[in-house]
Write a protein that binds this DNA or RNA. Structure first.
Length: 272
DNA sequence: AGCGGAACCTGTCGGC
DNA sequence: TGCCGACAGGTTCCGC
């Protein structure tokens, strides 16, 4: 489900609601959300601690706890967090409850059960977080550093951009969109991208991610914010899901192909 | 290094 | 209406 803009949207909303709240009780309805950790251990590691900040790294949600520890969450395809008034029975797809000191419940909801939660002392101890590459909107991610990294790989651009250890947070929707915006083919080997093209790619990536965050992300089917509202960036998608429709730039029909067992959408005319 | 395939689970949608 | 296959915003492991 969520890529960087959707996770950022969730993190900002939770950060407006959770800091200062204490977790009184944890209830786990599906063990496999916890990556093998017994639910009693998970609950004991969180209960009695307070939230101090909620933020994002790549597609991971990081909940800083006080006096120590971090809750690390990944929504995978269908995970969501919602804040519910006091409830007594779990609803469909409720996986974990964090009952707060004001009676409300932070609920981890996940239809497909791919999403994960874990507790660590420091996020860097988390295997997935530890291997994340640069944040695409950070000052460290420059057109020049991107060009240099591209030059060291022969991977097709689609694959290169999806690799979380290179740039953290891009997924299937935004990679299709930013390659179209940059006029680059998803099949182009990374090291066949010129410095000028890398600059275009970098610019398109930042522009699209910022625009998507400003629209609270993209809702294709079931992404919801914490307040259950949809994002709005789907109205601005130019190629993702648009197979057969005319390219907004040149009117040639958008193509869909399989790359790494995922759908890639692109314009065969504009993207070389 | 990098790719294809499968696995993790469930829901939805389109075609027949 | 009902069944069946394809597909879904992600990640990880395994074999070649």
């Amino acid at each position: 489900m969520p890529e960087l803009p959707e996770v950022e949207t969730i993190a900002r909303q939770l950060n407006g609601l959770l800091p200062g709240r204490t977790v009184e009780r944890v209830r786990v309805f599906r063990e496999n959300a916890l990556q093998g950790v017994p639910s009693a251990d998970f609950a004991a590691a969180v209960e009695g601690r307070s939230f101090s900040r909620v933020w994002r790294r790549g597609k991971y949600l990081l909940f800083d706890l006080a006096p120590s520890r971090q809750l690390v969450g990944h929504l995978r395809m269908t995970g969501k967090f919602v804040i519910s008034p006091r409830i007594s029975e779990p609803k469909a797809h409720h996986r974990v409850w964090f009952t707060l000191d004001n009676g409300e419940v932070l609920v981890f909801v996940d239809a497909r059960c791919f999403g994960t939660l874990s507790v660590v002392e420091h996020a860097q101890q988390h295997r997935g977080v530890a291997k994340l590459g640069v944040e695409p909107l950070s000052a460290a991610c420059t057109a020049r550093s991107m060009a240099e990294a591209l030059g060291r790989s022969r991977s097709p651009l689609k694959h290169w951009l999806m690799d979380q250890s290179r740039i953290a947070g891009l997924g299937n929707i935004y990679v299709s969109e930013l390659l179209h915006a940059a006029g680059l083919s998803p099949f182009r080997p990374a090291n066949a991208v010129s410095a000028e093209e890398a600059k275009r790619l970098h610019g398109a990536m930042r522009r699209i991610l910022r625009a998507a965050i400003a629209k609270n992300g993209t809702t294709i089917s079931d992404f919801r914010r914490v307040d259950e509202k949809s994002g709005e960036f789907q109205d601005f998608l130019r190629v993702y899901g648009k197979m057969g429709q005319p390219c907004p730039q040149c009117r040639v029909p958008i193509q869909r192909v399989r790359q790494q067992q995922r759908s890639t959408f692109y314009c065969p005319e504009c993207q070389a």
